[in-house]
Nucleic acid binder design. Sequence first.
DNA 1: AATTAGCAAATTATCGATAATTCTGCTGAG
DNA 2: CTCAGCAGAATTATCGATAATTTGCTAATT
Lengths: 209, 209
Amino acid sequence: MPAATDDTIAIRIGKVLAERIIAGVLEPGSRLGQDRIAEEFGASHVPVREAFRRLEAQGLVVSEPRRGVRVAGFSMDEVKEVAEMRAALEVLALRHAAAHLTKALLDEAEDATSAGDKAGDAHTWDEANRTFHRLILSPCGMPRLLKSIDDLHRASARFLFSGWRAEWEAPTDRDHRTILHALRAGNVETATSVLARHVQWVGKVPRKA
Amino acid sequence: MPAATDDTIAIRIGKVLAERIIAGVLEPGSRLGQDRIAEEFGASHVPVREAFRRLEAQGLVVSEPRRGVRVAGFSMDEVKEVAEMRAALEVLALRHAAAHLTKALLDEAEDATSAGDKAGDAHTWDEANRTFHRLILSPCGMPRLLKSIDDLHRASARFLFSGWRAEWEAPTDRDHRTILHALRAGNVETATSVLARHVQWVGKVPRKA
DNA sequence: AATTAGCAAATTATCGATAATTCTGCTGAG
DNA sequence: CTCAGCAGAATTATCGATAATTTGCTAATT
């Protein structure tokens, strides 16, 4: 949520654009002209270009060498792809994290789940959901893995916020609780298999139109 | 080896630097001054910065906001981390690719394996190895997944080329052939489990010093 | 002797302007 | 009526110069 004032302009622009893309404000396929954006942020286009490279790395935009960048489109196939990658990687992370999970951490994760229950809108829910996943995976001690998972989570969020899904509901809490229960009991296999299914839920919900 | 002439300067610089990092010419932790590099390539520092962002995305350098970028260090833990991520993702890719594998593709993969056998140096072997993996995974129809795997493969290669490994040998061919055999027989589960173990071999070889 | 304040040098980040490339809309021939 | 080819316009990529930060060194103070 922040925008640390010591962030570089390029980073700041990148964050704002990422939010817009994830929130669906910027439609898939729409062009991002560097001059237009530079002007909007009162900056030159150099930091804008750097922001583009970051977004490209996160898979939020696609860039063709001399013909500009556009917001990455996401078909149902791509959503499923991201979900499956997340599942595979989160399972890996959880396997490593399990041994280092403390009661305090699990309690925090439980709180995050409750916060998700009470969430009234998709954005708040997503925040709580992300917190839950981060909490149970963070002790895995694999920073690169965690970063990848975070990127994938953001990509999933695009789908959540798009008009595709019928309407807002928060149906995953039971999965979260099942996972926590299994983890408290030391049953890692159960936890990972529920997690794998849970993550792919995003790609399986029927669309609106 | 390409370096398509229509590539942007930033991309070209990025490729060269990536090669150097992977080959170990640039040591982990060493600073990459943008002016120095700009001068070397006869370019300004703007494309250099963009190249940095790309390398950062691939995990080859780390960048701290106003204090420059350095070559990413890689400890044994990080090597293992990359290997495990690769294993998880390649297994996923193979599961999806298996159904679409053709005999022609498998034959090509077999050729790549033979090429690896005959390789006299690590670089040639790595090329053949990468070809093998790409061939059997490419029909999975998940471009984002393939790109991630490619990035991880490059990161693994750093380890191969570093002085860490005792000396050069090419001991994985049997795994490759086992995988191909299982795939021809339609035995996907066997293929994936061998693949998973095979990929993590990199992280398990005893070091030199 | 150690620690910290303050200056100088080096380096990063940003800007405004220029060069190169792609896109657009038109014209004219077949 | 369609399509190839060609200005002109729009946009991207790069450059050289400037502003802002960090770093390293010196010196003063406790």
